[in-house]
Design a protein around this nucleic acid. Sequence first.
DNA 1: AATGAATGAGACTTCATTCAT
DNA 2: CATGAATGAAGTCTCATTCAT
Lengths: 213, 213, 213, 213
Amino acid sequence: MTAPSPTTTPMRGRSAGRPRARAVSRAAIADAVVDLICDRGFGGWSMRDLAERLGVSLGTLTHHMRDKQTLLIEAMDSMYVLPPDWSRYRRLPPAAQLARMAETFIIDTPRRRRGWRFWVEYMAGVGHNTALRDRHEQRYERQRRFFARVIAAGVTAGDLATDLDPEHEAARLLALGNGLAVQQLVTPDHLSPEAARRILTTYLTSLQRPSEG
Amino acid sequence: MTAPSPTTTPMRGRSAGRPRARAVSRAAIADAVVDLICDRGFGGWSMRDLAERLGVSLGTLTHHMRDKQTLLIEAMDSMYVLPPDWSRYRRLPPAAQLARMAETFIIDTPRRRRGWRFWVEYMAGVGHNTALRDRHEQRYERQRRFFARVIAAGVTAGDLATDLDPEHEAARLLALGNGLAVQQLVTPDHLSPEAARRILTTYLTSLQRPSEG
Amino acid sequence: MTAPSPTTTPMRGRSAGRPRARAVSRAAIADAVVDLICDRGFGGWSMRDLAERLGVSLGTLTHHMRDKQTLLIEAMDSMYVLPPDWSRYRRLPPAAQLARMAETFIIDTPRRRRGWRFWVEYMAGVGHNTALRDRHEQRYERQRRFFARVIAAGVTAGDLATDLDPEHEAARLLALGNGLAVQQLVTPDHLSPEAARRILTTYLTSLQRPSEG
Amino acid sequence: MTAPSPTTTPMRGRSAGRPRARAVSRAAIADAVVDLICDRGFGGWSMRDLAERLGVSLGTLTHHMRDKQTLLIEAMDSMYVLPPDWSRYRRLPPAAQLARMAETFIIDTPRRRRGWRFWVEYMAGVGHNTALRDRHEQRYERQRRFFARVIAAGVTAGDLATDLDPEHEAARLLALGNGLAVQQLVTPDHLSPEAARRILTTYLTSLQRPSEG
DNA sequence: AATGAATGAGACTTCATTCAT
DNA sequence: CATGAATGAAGTCTCATTCAT
């Protein structure tokens, strides 16, 4: 590798050749942007706010990022371009996979909360920002297809009821999950994570193949 | 200084323009604000944009509404303070009432589309505007309680299954409906109004008292 | 809304102007503010006026000073935080010190005139700007205490009459001086610097220890 | 008199012919303006503020007063065009007259406080508002001449020391009084009305003819 | 007489961006 | 690479004033 050393003082020794550790990485910037968007909304933050949160000067920020639009795209991508890491669950039986996926709709950690706050802003944002819409158009559909595939696998495997329409059920699960997440966000006092989980569990149970008896 | 102390000698705004005959009502303003929010997002419009859309001067706007916050509140109220006119359905049997209510989640008219576009922006907006959140926090809960009451009436009337938990089902219906609406908004090509209606109908059917046999 | 949430898509201020080579220091700004206040009164100037006088853009102003309040405070401080350079007089006998101090109440130079014009505006300004009052309330008292200390030293040194109450005389001298300054400002034709000086001298003489005889 | 009745219902009886009691009199307006100026400074109030304080609509206000400048003049006049009502003291011996005049510099009532707050604003105002300066130019000098006349009368009457220069002493008394008033206004905790009165009394005593003995 | 509607000018402030160092 | 200076555009809001009713 030919990248410069990680410290400002030129170290020619063992660490030579590693990429210089920038004071602010693009990832750190994108992360801070997401935080800002969660806190203050899609358009409720300024470059200065971001610079302060990152502890760098405003000049430094614009030095790293062409403009705000780019920043926005970067932030969205950091949340959504990589498919959620469901690959780890591949080996699980479909029903268990579904359970894991359903779990993502339960807001019981700050991280989950952040994710759904961002989701709401994102849903609003793609509605009127063409640049975002163009870039992320198929994201929603992709997730639904993923759900559908898992459900179809469950039917094939005999875990789920044989008369299920995977497309139909995927849309249903996604809608139910999203709606529950919003409710937890807006009226947490009236829909606790446990209540939401119960609703999802009830639904998932209804998908299973009726055990003969 | 927030409250500037302008000098007096150089009188400002001495020659005011002729007032037009145009009259703008608060309702018309609120309506335009809703349109603007749907088109450009919660924070994506300026007072000038609004004035131009209404065909009045900028000063006229603040003459009718103190400031932008007021404008926002008025717009929200115009959409949400009046409960949807469900009173007309009072006489219907509960199951029919539920069907009507479910129908509101189907986006098959421009008007419905506008309503749900606004809803998404609204969900995002209340997330970071405390004044709005304080004002509208109970709106969501109020709707759920309304649903719960209708469901409870259905159980009592014998239309719906006797083992239903109205609160639970109301939350579920609301979540499902909201989620379906968002899906119709974002991926209309993949979730048509008919598909959404089918999902809701399936769900409502599952609530009914199993016909004996 | 106080904190507007501008949209992001229509990027604002994309093409910023070339920065000039002109450099404005905080001190230069404060100085210009003092001039402006003297000329047009406490609230009789705008940020634009100031920018034009300094030959910089409006944005540059807020780049150096957060807002108008800050500007005001800075201007006040530039006139008053540093005690007038009386330390040089430390070595003089108290009576001579008093004479020098009294001299500050004589308006016989443009600089003195500027100082007292500002003082009058300042007295008015602190009357209704709480932030300034909080900041500068003790300034007046500090000056009186300084006077009292010098007078007390004079009594101790035997220069001044032994039956003087330093506090009482300090208040008296300050009041007389301020009043004379205002009179010179408002009716210069009827109270010349010489007349004012004569009044102060008469007063200071009356403080001296009666020559025995 | 031919003016209409004081009530809106036409009363032809005994009260016919009296000037209609307007909802807002010019005097009431001027009075409110003075209050506003005392509270918020010379330029720190708006027509709307004034209308609210008077309990009338903004339209009504401008219906009565041509413009703000007029209002300002009117307010100043209401305070200063009429010479202070010292005529009542004409009959008193000059020393007593002086004592009464001195008393006006003591801020021990809300009314006095109001008067001196206004004075400070006025002093500042005439410094940069040419219209005011033109109208009130000689006010300050008039007051000093009045003082001088009383002192001269005192000398003639034998109440005061014979070697006094009335002009000189009048300027001195006015300066001392104004300065004391400002001090009471700005640092009331450090110069009480009593302390101020003591200083003035000491001064006035020093003017008296030394009692032989 | 009284008032509400209307308005243009201008106030302060924020902000994304460019550039020289 | 990092940063502070500079700036024009645009934002929200205030305000004195005019006019029709």
